[in-house]
Design a protein around this nucleic acid. Sequence first.
RNA 1: GGGUCUGUAGCUCAGAUGGUUAGAGCACUCGCCUGAUAAGCGAGAGGUCACAAGUUCAAGUCUUGUCAGACCCA
Length: 1059
Amino acid sequence: MFKPVSAKVSVPAVEEEQLDFWRQKHIFERTMDERRDGPRYVFYEGPPTANGKPGTHHVLARAFKDMFPRYKTMRGYYVLRKGGWDTHGLPVEIEVEKELGLNHKHEIEAYGIAEFNEKCRRSVFRYITEWEKLTERMAFWVNLDDAYVTFTNDYIQSVWWILKQFWEKGLLYRGKRVVPYCARCGTPLSSHEVAQGYKDVADPSIFVRFPLRDEPGTYFLVWTTTPWTLPGNVALAVGENVDYVLVEGPTADGEGSERLILAEALMSAALNDPEAYTVVERFKGRDLLGKHYNPLYTFLPVEQDYAYVIAGDFVSTEEGSGIVHIAPAFGADDMEVGKANNLPVLMTVDPDGTFIDAVTPWRGMWVKEADPLITQELAGRGLLYRTEIYEHSYPFCWRCDSPLLYYARDTWFIATTKYRDKLIELNQTINWVPSHIRDGRFGNWLEDLKDWALGRERYWGTPLPIWVDDRTGDMICVGSVEELSRLAGRDLSDLDLHRPYVDEITFPNPNGSGGTMRRVPELIDVWFDSGSMPVAQWGYPFANQELFREQYPADYICEAVDQTRGWFYSLHAISGMLFESVAFKNVICLGHILDINGQKMSKSRPETFVEPWQVFDAYGADAFRWYMYTSGPPGEPRRFSMDLVAEVMTKFWMTLWNTYSFFVTYANLDNWSPAQEAPPAAERDPLDRWVLSELHNLVRRVTDAYENYDVPGATRPIQAFVEQLSNWYVRLSRRRFWKSEDDSDKLSAYATLYECLVTLAHLLAPAMPFLSEIMYRNLVASVDPSAPESVHLASWPEYNEALIDSSLMDTMALAQRLVSLGRAARESANLRVRQPLAKAAFAVRFPAEKEALESLQGLVASELNVKQVEVLDNAGDVVSYRLNPLPRLLGKKFGKDFPRVQKALREGDPEQVTAWAKALLDGQPVTVTLDGQDFEVMPEECEVRQEAAEGYAVAEEGGYMAALSTTLTDELVLEGLAREVVRRIQTMRRDADFDISDRILVAYQASGRLAEAIQAHEAYITGETLADVLEEATPTDDGFTQSFTIDGETLTLNIRKAA
RNA sequence: GGGUCUGUAGCUCAGAUGGUUAGAGCACUCGCCUGAUAAGCGAGAGGUCACAAGUUCAAGUCUUGUCAGACCCA
């Protein structure tokens, strides 16, 4: 006996039961323990930060992370799933600053770095319980008890070790980098801080004349919105392929003429009075390269050559003049072309945002305040051409609201560019899903690789382990606590490796002749932390050397697509530079979750915001997960709402549940068990053979999809199969289960449906861990003591090629199509399905289909409730023909002539068409002659459509036709009425809440033809309704009584349970 | 400003290699069926396949451009 399964079910309740079972039996731990000798499959968990609540997008990522470890476990692999937490970085600091009401770095230092960092450490796990609850509830199996945590000394020490490897390879260096910088707060801002602070503002912008050194009276016309950067100017940039012009026009005072160089496309926008100028010469940007101009200012000494024209691919002809002023200290592009051309960096501004003393006219002045004064000063020298107001969006500090400056700071870099070719080469071996990421978003990023700016001037993070001699500048990179202890001359194994404690460690220069070594103030980028996890999660190389080797690199990782430049990159770069190996072999990049309107889901729009727990509580985790897998390609953004999960519930979860419930109900009634012998598959009913063929084909498809990391391919076909199983196989087989004789057909039906359900439980296990477990435990584990206790400990199913019969599958698809057409024909003639008809005739497209139809005629006949099924008879039933040449075949064959041939066949003379049609149906080729040219058409190249004669109800689609004979004999009418009576008794049984196996007594009173029908079909009616007695009698008060009118006849029925 | 991706019915999505009259599910209307079902079946309505040019006998599909959205970078 199986445990009874009610069709009514509370999904969250049954899922909670499974959670209890897994907890009590330690199933998750056992998925690893029992596979310990298996081959390794390695999954890396991209560490989330637990200082915010997990949301729907986390369910998405975790659902995708979970399925492959589960699948591979079922394939016999040992899959260690170590969790991890990302704990350092600015987002954590910002939370704590808010909490403490701190706004500036100096306030943090006044508060105390030790206390501040202690707050950070504690705040990291603020929502850890929420994360753990969510992870468990959705059944993401990852080991959180033994998770790696990036703030531990062991982790930091491994990161230090990596940095030291890079140091020894000469990859760590100090250089200048332009960063968005708030001068008032004295700190650079990270990109997400900058993104918060954009505002639309109107700034003054100016066009300035830069006089050519060798051509007096000629000027470059240059546009800028930041006059304060002009004292830092060292070059001008042009687009090499942009068209430029030299124009001549009047000077401002109208007393002479001057010559200006600017982009041709911008003449009308940039020139004061474009009509007044004439073009003297045209050239490309590249013709201007190297031309010198006289610098506007010379506040700082310069040794190398400068103040000439260079090429910049960022030069735009959308606005300005097409000639861009370059100040490497104050722009990222500027810095880059400056480096490339060996230009100086003129640092004219102090870190507090005021001009340095050397800039004498404006020394000590806040740069933005100096803007109008500089403009004035240029005007005084006749170099100002024009001023205007420019509206654009500009970033402001989100804390203090002052405008950010782009400002060059000294910082530490990793020379990733030295490994660029290696990283590109390694990337080619990674399987990216979707595949375009490899050479697109990620590949482009590697092509444009810049050195990794590693340093952060902050507090809560991994300290950069470089100590500098305060006298000689000698540097040491420390790679372990042991090494630091040795240098400091004392045991530091208990030292907290964070600031401020690590800053307090100083020591004399080990070369004996220097001063004191002190740590540099920087921390490192948190992305370096998470990218180090393949090594640092094990504390390698200080511990777990074996484990590391066995768990590197990862077979599979999965995160959202924004990690392309985040974790995916940091993993890849560190791994490539450290080991010249990839860190991961397969990766799925997920698109983002959007709300139902296609906008980013936000709590500020509560009507479209969905919390994960709402979904778990309403529909459970399986339906939630299933939606994520099946709703579209993984890399695409997906819209999300409760209703979409509800659809999964009714269309898939419930359909499968009820098929399962149906099976268990009848198997228990019949005392069936899987131990009972059933006929071999080949000897079973065609319906059984068909569904088994579909099943084994499904196993093949799903397995292939899993092997290719194709998630929709591993899930959507299961849904389609379940639909077929429920609405075709079970619906058509129902009678086989409730026939009372224990014959071999019934055993075949049970064995077939059982195999389908058990196989489905396995195929679904990685995607729907709950429902698959419920089914498996009841159908398998409860009856077979030797079977694994959980489906997640079981083996993945194998398919049997011999059972896959593609012609049977085609045949069944044809039968379904013809039945559907037959129903449409009934509809058109208003013939209800309960009314039996004498005949259904079909037109099919190919001779093979004729045989197929014949092999399933019983099934088609019973579905359509007709006595006879046949293929249309050309002689009698068909009145006309139409021809439909098939473009796929004939288009290629006839090329340009195809449209003419097509027209001739489709719209030709009816007599000719009939002759052609008959020939084609006989398998003969026909020849179409057009303008003396012959075109031979083979039977398979042209479809023949047939139209039925009078007396048929007809429906047609795509070359197929169903024709139902509409003539009703007395006999058919009586049979139809008997079915009406059966249906009404069945409805009454159900309304009376009888058990499906209860036997009943029926009394009736009926008029005319109804009475006749009941008498004629008494055995049929009693058999269908489990009636012991069917007698004409006056209804008593006993039992249930109801009256009906059917086709004008009256009927009163009384039913009660038999004793 | 640059890169990658996307745009097919009111909604969610399918539509190798160009080829018949562009499909499914949901939702809506009408009808049917029901000893498993939160169900099932049939019909109706709903599409200038974002737009425009081009290649081709033939374009949702290929090319180019434009527009819109998402993400990343600047």
